[in-house]
Write a protein that binds this DNA or RNA. Structure first.
Length: 293
DNA sequence: CCACTAACCTGTAGGC
DNA sequence: TGCCTACAGGTTAGTG
């Protein structure tokens, strides 16, 4: 479930173990995920130090000792976990258990305080991908991204300028990573619900005279920020020990107010509505037809 | 440039 | 239990 809050939770879980760790060995169990791994991926990572686990939108960015960037996108089902073992015989481990069959990348890390551990990337659907760059500026994936929704660069004025005259539904506009980077299907539904805006509203309808944001667009910005911060907090509280956590690390089951609640009562106090589901640009949208306008 | 669809790939839930 | 369909948190390529 990796939208911005989940990726941030993964980053925070990884950081205590990978920041300052040396990459001792890298094993790829296949040549591609969504895309092929870059040439000499394992060789170029091996021997490097991870200085810091960072994040931009839904991308994990591991800053390397030589100034380079190891980029990882989790797609829909990607996750990292640690195991206290060497990866010298990964095949033997994979065969020992069926749930290892989607372990695609195995990395031995040596951390000055935490010692040696295996960092495993697993991804059933393989919509995730990894790449290596000499610098952030070099990544085409990062080049076109809009502002971070939790930064000051994301605000109602900027959205108004972008949305003026725009015919796309607000749902689609917020999913567009060039507009704002990090929102996904869940948190767009949640933010629109909280701001009482129907997902079918045209983006341009939230803009007033002289490209000024309408009050509901101001509310939307506030609710986007709030729902992301709450989700990050929930992830942080769920996250105990990333290294020793059983199962997948960093994902958490957050309580959603509207997402995936089709047919259930609206949770807005005093509202008598029932949650509806529609499909917009091929993806489910959830909303309350009574308190969203 | 814009908007929409199909595609990528595997797992799971629900109906019969 | 099996078989079938629909659907899943993301992004990109292709079409009109």
């Amino acid at each position: 479930m990796p939208e911005l809050p989940e990726v941030e939770t993964v980053r925070r879980g990884l950081a205590p173990y990978v920041d300052g760790a040396r990459i001792e060995a890298v094993t790829l169990n296949r040549k591609d995920l969504r895309f092929a791994f870059p040439k000499d991926f394992a060789k170029r990572l091996t021997g490097q130090t991870i200085e810091r686990a960072g994040r931009r939108a839904k991308y994990l960015l591991f800053h390397l000792g030589d100034g380079g960037i190891w980029l990882s996108h989790l797609g829909m089902t990607g996750s990292f976990r640690f195991e206290d073992r060497l990866i010298t015989e990964p095949t033997r481990y994979r065969e020992a258990s069926a749930d290892r069959k989607h372990d695609h990348v195995e990395i031995t890390l040596v951390h000055p305080e935490q010692g040696r551990m295996a960092l495993i990337y697993t991804d059933a659907r393989r919509f995730g991908f990894m790449d290596l760059y000499a610098s952030e500026a070099e990544s085409p994936y990062l080049a076109g991204l809009g502002p971070e929704p939790l930064s000051n660069d994301f605000n109602a004025e900027m959205l108004a300028a972008r949305f003026a005259g725009k015919k796309a539904p607000i749902k689609a506009a917020l999913l567009d990573q060039r507009v704002v980077a990090g929102l996904g299907n869940i948190y767009v539904s949640e933010a629109l619900y909280r701001a009482h805006i129907l997902p079918t509203r045209l983006a341009g309808s939230l803009v007033g005279k002289r490209d000024r944001p309408k009050p509901e667009l101001e509310a939307l910005v506030i609710e986007v920020r709030k729902v992301l911060l709450e989700a990050i907090d929930a992830g942080g509280s769920t996250l105990r020990d990333f290294r020793n956590a059983d199962g997948n690390s960093g994902y958490f089951q957050h309580r959603f107010m509207i997402y995936d609640r089709e047919g259930e009562p609206c949770l807005t106090p005093g509202c008598t509505g029932t949650v509806q589901r529609i499909v917009q640009s091929g993806r489910s949208s959830f909303f309350c037809p009574v308190c969203q306008h």
